[in-house]
Design a protein around this nucleic acid. Structure first.
Lengths: 224, 224
DNA sequence: ATAGTAAAAATTATCTATAATTTTGAATTT
DNA sequence: AAATTCAAAATTATAGATAATTTTTACTAT
């Protein structure tokens, strides 16, 4: 997600950001058509910036577009969840390898705080926010903007799967992986930390879930 | 204009593809402003599809856009070249691991052909085409569309660096890495193939080069 | 001469309007 | 009753026009 300053944000960027949040949160079901005039009306805009927003969502993998047939919310199969998880593992490991030498004790403390916040979380949304904060904290020092942007998009996709599955039912749990990663980093064992991270990100849960429309289907989520 | 497009390709897609080719080929220098009305006029279109094309280029990392200040061709520093190379290594290794079990002898033969074509190439463009064909052939069987799309974008970025550097001066050379990768795959040694691929993709050459505007600067390129 | 400032030109971002295409739904036929 | 066809409605894609902003240029003052 390319974040521009809130004030100097173009209309297309704002629209795409808000639509992305809704799709990730599971408020709009996969396959739902996004109709440009409806979206335009909602935001009090014309459809030109809406179309640009659609192109952004498309690039993020949150929407798919067919010429002359419009745009719909991207669907996802188990295979795609796995794909995103494996890509995250590969890229986060790369980022951590480069970040490790630049991670300060202050960063590790902040990451510890994020882990605690995750353990205390009351719902999925809270947990996801803390989890993303943890990952961002330990990866950002790699100083590779393109890599971090790619990881951000994959995180959004992961969060989508997560929210779809644990929409209402959520019970806090202590995140042993996060603590193990921090312990390894504190001891300067970057390889060990990377290995745990790789496994951690690919943890996939699976359970039946109710869709917003009432149907029941098999769902799954990455929880790392 | 006559909107009877022979293909089912939208105008925005065609414009972004052609602009991407130019940027990758080094025909437009980094930092050059892309002015929507000029582009629109050239393609005989209005600026709406042009703006959409710009959003696509932005997502591919080939252009950068600032609100109200327009879009310019993305510049690149050595650090960014390295970043792309490392991302490619991480993702191509992942793709190869999944592709390996599904690679048939016919695919390996085709990849061998691509390698030979690369060895015979008379200019960079020819070599790059053969090189990309080789990588696509051995990676496509992984059957992970999102991963392959990400790799494609990284290839485009790599090609950009390559063309900038070896624009005119090119001498063919036999690609030992490609042959070693194929040999390992023929013997069912996927890990070995992946290891060579990872190193191969990160090979970075460095040399002084003349820019289109006449200046001389240090350039570099991934050649794998 | 150089720096600062204001008017002019160019450019971006958006809106309104129009053409083309697809989807929907009813009427007709098998 | 099911399938097919054709017209109407909805929707997408593009064009043309307008307002806002930035960049450039020219002018003035030091």
């Amino acid at each position: 997600m390319t974040t521009t300053s809130a004030k100097e944000e173009t209309l297309a960027v704002r629209i795409s950001r808000i639509l992305a949040e809704r799709i990730v949160a599971g408020e709009i079901e996969p396959g739902t058509r996004l109709r440009q005039d409806h979206v335009a009306e909602e935001f009090g805009a014309s459809h030109v910036p809406v179309r640009e927003a659609f192109r952004r969502l498309e690039a993020q993998g949150l929407a798919v577009s067919e010429p002359r047939r419009g745009v719909r919310v991207a669907s996802f199969a188990l295979s795609e969840v796995r794909e995103v998880a494996e890509m995250r593992a590969a890229l986060e490991v790369l980022a951590l390898r480069h970040a490790a030498p630049h991670i300060t004790p202050a960063i590790l403390d902040a990451a510890e705080e994020a882990t605690k916040a995750g353990d205390k979380s009351r719902d999925v949304r809270e947990w996801e926010e803390a989890n993303r904060r943890f990952h961002r904290l330990i990866l950002t020092p790699c100083n590779m903007p393109r890599l971090l942007a790619a990881i951000d998009d994959l995180h959004a996709a992961s969060a989508r799967f997560l929210f779809t599955t644990w929409r209402s039912s959520w019970e806090a749990r202590t995140d042993h992986d996060h603590r193990a990663i921090l312990a390894a980093l504190r001891q300067g064992q970057a390889d060990q930390a990377a290995a745990i991270l790789a496994r951690h990100v690919q943890w996939i849960g699976q359970r039946p879930v109710k869709t917003p429309s009432g149907a029941t289907r098999d769902a799954f989520a990455i929880v790392g």
